[in-house]
Structures are given as structure tokens and as C-alpha cells.
């Protein structure tokens, strides 16, 4: 437990001191919302119909950039090799990286919600608990697979292409479920309609956190 927290704390502290990724990605996420606004046109009915999809595409694109960044630091100074030299369970290393990535992504998402409400003219306040729950569940699953694949592709020359290529098809269920649940909460029908989607998200999280935990050992072994 202490080891997990130590790894996550290291990542968050580095980011907290420089804030360069966080600021950049926040700007990027807002830009995605804006660009989709241009692509879909200013019709308010159409915008509000597409809104939850746009929001999650924004989260996923931003999350992907964030994950790439999270392992860039480990690669540049061969920090991961150093971390791996510590005796004991490597699973803690995975969980630590996962926790760091999750906290980072969630912080971003919470900051994006006001932008979303602003550009897409959404009344978020009543739906907020549901939206946050959906964001949390979706982020766990996305980051679980993403952290594993980012570790896997970090040493490859073609990583910028391969990483999204591997990750995106895997997280299709997360995208679908999160978009549907978000849509239901925004319509105010969250209590009944979002439930099965949240269960699906929780199931995805459970399966992929467990499996990735085992798989990480195989990925980093030499």
C-alpha cells in the first residue's frame, strides 16, 4: 500500500510542481469541445444531442495524451528501470502509476466540466453527482488499460501511432457506456437509465484492473 502511494505521489508531485502537462491538456480539452462545436454547427438542439459524446471524445483524447506524457518522464531518464530495481512486488508499481494517472485525469475532467457547461449551455448542477460517478468509473477502466499499454509501447519507435491504435478499440465499451450514462444523467433520467451502463463500466474496471495487474509483470520483466 505504501509503495503504491509512493509511486503515485512521485508522479503527482512532479506534475504539481511544473503543471506543464496539466495546463497544456486542459487547454487541449477545451479546444476539442470548441472544435466539435464548429464541426457540428451552432444549432443548439444538435449540439445538446451530441454533447455527451463530444465530452467523452474529449476526455479520451486528452487522457491518451496524458498517458503518453506519464511514461515519457520514465523513459527519458530510464527512471522505470530504476523503479524496477527495487525489490518486491511490481504490481505495486503498476497500481501506483495507475493511481497517479487516474487522479491526474480526474482532476482534468473536473476542470473540463465548467467549460462544457459553458460552451454547450448545459445545466450541470443537478446532474453533477451522476456525472462525476460516471467520469470516475470510466476513468478507472480507461486508465487501467491505458497505463498497461503505455508501459508496453514506451520503448517502441512507433509509439505515438501504436499506442492509440492499440488502446482505442479496447476502450470502446468504456466510451459507449460512459456516453450513454452521461446522456441519461443530463436528461435527468439518470437514476433508471444510467444504471445498467454504470454496472457495465464497473465490470470493465474490475476485469481490466485485475488482468492488467498480472499482465504488467509480464510486460516489464527482462
Amino acid at each position: 500500500m505504501g509503495r503504491i502511494w509512493a509511486v503515485a505521489r512521485k508522479d503527482l508531485l512532479t506534475e504539481g510542481r511544473s503543471k506543464e502537462t496539466l495546463n497544456g491538456l486542459l487547454f487541449f480539452a477545451a479546444l476539442v469541445l470548441l472544435v466539435f462545436g464548429f464541426a457540428l454547427g451552432p444549432d443548439p438542439a444538435r449540439l445538446s444531442q451530441a454533447a455527451s459524446g463530444v465530452l467523452w471524445v474529449g476526455f479520451i483524447l486528452t487522457g491518451m495524451l496524458g498517458l503518453t506524457r506519464a511514461f515519457q518522464a520514465e523513459r527519458e531518464n530510464e527512471c522505470l528501470e530504476g523503479l524496477l530495481l527495487y525489490p518486491g512486488d511490481r504490481g505495486a508499481l503498476y497500481l501506483g502509476k495507475l493511481l497517479g494517472n487516474m487522479v491526474f485525469m480526474l482532476a482534468l475532467e473536473v476542470a473540463v466540466f465548467p467549460c462544457f457547461a459553458f460552451f454547450y449551455n448545459m445545466a450541470l448542477w443537478d446532474a453533477l453527482p451522476g456525472l462525476l460517478l460516471t467520469a470516475a468509473l470510466g476513468t478507472v477502466g480507461f486508465a487501467a488499460v491505458g497505463t498497461l499499454f503505455a508501459a508496453m509501447t514506451m520503448h517502441l519507435r512507433a509509439r505515438e501511432v501504436l499506442f492509440p491504435l492499440l488502446l482505442l478499440p479496447f476502450v470502446v465499451p468504456v466510451l459507449l457506456a460512459a456516453v450513454k450514462a452521461t446522456e441519461a444523467f443530463l436528461r435527468g433520467a439518470g437514476r433508471t437509465e444510467a444504471f445498467p451502463w454504470l454496472v457495465l463500466l464497473a465490470l470493465f474496471d474490475l476485469v481490466f484492473v485485475t488482468v492488467s495487474l498480472f499482465a504488467f509483470e509480464w510486460v516489464v520483466e527482462e
Partner: peptide, 8 residues
């Protein structure tokens, strides 16, 4: 999981 989600 993909199948279930897409089916719904």
C-alpha cells in the same frame, strides 16, 4: 464486454 455494450 464489447459485444454486450454494443448490443445494448
Amino acid at each position: 464486454i464489447i459485444h454486450k455494450s454494443v448490443e445494448w
